[in-house]
Computed example of a mutant assay.
Amino acid sequence: MPSVFSAIIAGDLPGRFVWEDEDVVAFLTIAPVTQGHTLVVPRKEVDQWQDVDEELFDKCTAVSRKIAQAVRAAFDAPRAGFLIAGLEVPHLHMHVFPAYSMGNFDISGAETDPSPESLDEAADKIRTALRNLGHGEFVPA
């Protein structure tokens, strides 16, 4: 059975995508720790991060760095947080988010019901920042 992330990637479930390439996608989480919290996910289903082949892991982290630069710029954040937890969905995903304090790294305290408007606004800001950083070819319309 495909993971919920595979269903989002396939378009069977909605997602607010900010990055798409042949191997990796990034979309906003529906449980953000801060506005702009984005998940970087390989298209290939791999459960454990330590089991992914090195080339795909490197590509995921490279995309995560680009998303981190964009969320810092889009939300004027002093830092970008980066976590790999993997307990919520059995499909490798990297959490990238604007970080303002150490408390932002506690994903158990994530917002459980963000407004659609807040998520749409965050996606638009990240897409704009990615385009401004020169990554427009990977930003969905």
Rank of each mutant, 00 (worst) to 15 (best):
T128I: 07
V46G: 12
R16S: 05
W49Q: 09
G81R: 10
T128M: 02
D12M: 10
D113K: 15
A62F: 14
V46S: 11
S108I: 09
D120M: 09
A70C: 14
L39H: 07
G81Q: 06
D23F: 00
H95L: 07
T61Y: 11
L130D: 05
V33C: 03
A68P: 03
H95V: 03
I67F: 03
A26E: 09
A62V: 03
F97H: 01
F27D: 02
D106R: 14
F75W: 10
E55A: 14
S101L: 04
H135F: 08
L92N: 09
F82Y: 13
V41H: 12
L13R: 13
G136D: 02
A68W: 00
T34M: 01
D120A: 14
A7W: 03
I67H: 07
E45K: 13
A80R: 03
V18T: 07
F138H: 15
A110P: 05
T29H: 06
I8C: 05
P2F: 02
G86T: 09
D53M: 02
A7F: 05
E117S: 13
C60D: 11
V52I: 15
V4H: 10
L87N: 13
R131D: 01
E137T: 14
I8Y: 04
K59I: 01
L133D: 07
V63W: 03
R72A: 00
T128F: 05
F75K: 02
G11P: 01
L119N: 00
V89S: 04
V63D: 14
M94Q: 10
T38V: 13
I107F: 15
A80N: 00
D53N: 14
K59H: 14
P42F: 03
F75R: 05
E137P: 04
V33T: 06
A122R: 08
S3D: 08
V18F: 00
L39C: 08
Y100D: 03
P2H: 02
S64T: 15
S115K: 04
F57C: 07
R127E: 08
H91M: 00
D76Y: 08
K59W: 03
T29E: 07
L87Y: 13
I126R: 04
D51Q: 07
M94E: 07
L28A: 08
E137C: 02
L83G: 07
P116M: 15
D113A: 12
F27E: 05
Q50D: 15
G134E: 13
I67N: 13
E137R: 15
L56Y: 14
V25Y: 07
Q35P: 12
